[in-house]
């Protein structure tokens, strides 16, 4: 059975691209389109990994990450934050929120995402 990843991303176009990357390495992907939906999905059916966009409506990715890491049901799940803002302060904020990696959405994003999945032991 394929391992399941929860992707929390409000842009349908970007969600489709990231989903394609994750599915290309054999993972099954569920998509939540905002923070509250993502938190609900993560709690009701915990995935092996959460890929989280920073810029989300109603609740940003940092808030979502902090809530995931405070919840005993979800705090053990690795979180990779994907962002268009990858400056020093944003990186520090992401890591302080408890993210396991903070990856900019650039041309190397897919490669970095897969490398991180390997390092976390989700992919061989």
């Amino acid at each position: 059975m394929a391992l399941e990843v929860l992707l929390i991303e409000d842009s349908k176009t970007q969600a489709a691209q990231i989903k394609e990357t994750l599915e290309s390495v054999g993972l099954q992907v569920r998509v939540a389109y905002d923070g509250p939906e993502g938190l609900r999905e993560a709690t009701e059916n915990p995935p092996v990994l959460i890929v989280l966009d920073v810029k989300l409506p109603s609740m940003d990715g940092f808030q979502v990450c902090r809530r995931l890491k405070r919840n005993p049901v979800t705090q053990h799940i690795p979180v990779i934050m994907l962002t268009e803002k990858a400056g020093p302060q944003a990186t520090i904020s992401g890591l302080r929120a408890g993210a396991d990696d903070y990856i900019p959405k650039d041309i190397f994003a897919s490669e970095h995402l897969i490398n991180t999945l390997q390092e976390l032991g989700i992919l061989e």
Binding site: D101, P104, H112
Partner: peptide, 29 residues
């Protein structure tokens, strides 16, 4: 972007964790 990517590669080769790779990549950028 290439500098950021190169920092990640170098950090990976040395065995840094993903969080510290992200810090090094951001500092290099």
């Amino acid at each position: 972007m290439i500098a950021r990517d190169t920092a990640r590669r170098a950090a990976t080769l040395l065995g840094f964790t993903s969080a510290r790779r992200a810090q090094l990549a951001s500092a290099t950028a």
